[in-house]
Amino acid sequence: MDPPWTQSDPLLTPRPYRVTRNRRELQDTVTLELESGDGAPLSFSAGQFNMLYLFGIGEVPISISGSPHEPDPLVHTIRSVGAVTKAICGLKRGQTLGVRGPFGKGWPLEAAIGQDLVLIAGGIGLAPLRPAVRQVIAQRDRYGKVSLLVGARTPKDLLYLAELKEWRSRFDLQVLITVDSAGADWRSHVGVVTMLISKAEFEAGETVAMICGPEVMMRFCVAELRKRGVVAENTYLSMERNMKCAVGYCGHCQFGPTFVCKDGPVFPLARIEPFFRMRGV
């Protein structure tokens, strides 16, 4: 039963990282800052993910939420939805977890240079888009108009609130925020994120859209974007499936003809469109 090879393939074997900060974002969501055990920061592109491993508990795929141009510390935002993510959310400063990655294909920020951008996030979907927002801000002159549309259930469920306010104060960024329901003290939009698409400022013919959120939300966003003239080739989605090996051999994350772990998680809609419309694929 012993593996017949020497250690350690970085794609298969986690490397130890130390928690330098655990910041609570929401009731069930934290952001971890991680420092590499061997000092070398993890170079990644916006939209890629890592497999996070907790000794004796298990491993989960989590997208990277830091800035690609500031890879140290490694930043992950994690929502507690199961045994492993719950334990990871409970990590304290100084504790260790394993990281292998980065995996997959990220947002098309190079291909989108010179274009208008519309970035649409639903709930925790803002976590994989944050690296893209930060990279775009760092290289703001490379892009045309940029809008960020953010939806959450309630004002209490808004991720990165302080940063959202900072982004909203910029004149070169259109930030629209909506929640499904809110109290009387809420001053912004109420309703689903798709209705913000009609308010976003972009020239449809030269726009790249990047969407991350629940599949049903992305489905409606795609329809709304199409109405405004954004074609499937310029619409990108971050898909979620059950990534286990992350290198394309375990078969779990298949989505039609693709493996989400290596062909995605970010896909141009044109590549996955027929399967995106079907149930149980």
């Binding site: 039963m1 012993d2 593996p3 017949p4 090879w5 020497t6 250690q7 350690s8 298969l12 074997t13 130890p16 130390r18 055990g37 000794f55 004796g56 100084g94 504790q95 260790t96 394993g98």
Partner: peptide, 24 residues
Amino acid sequence: PREMIWKVVREGKGFRFVDTQRDS
């Protein structure tokens, strides 16, 4: 049908992967 991918031991606050190479 069953294969061990790696083995790891706890070490202080961290862990260390054990080299388990064996030629078959």
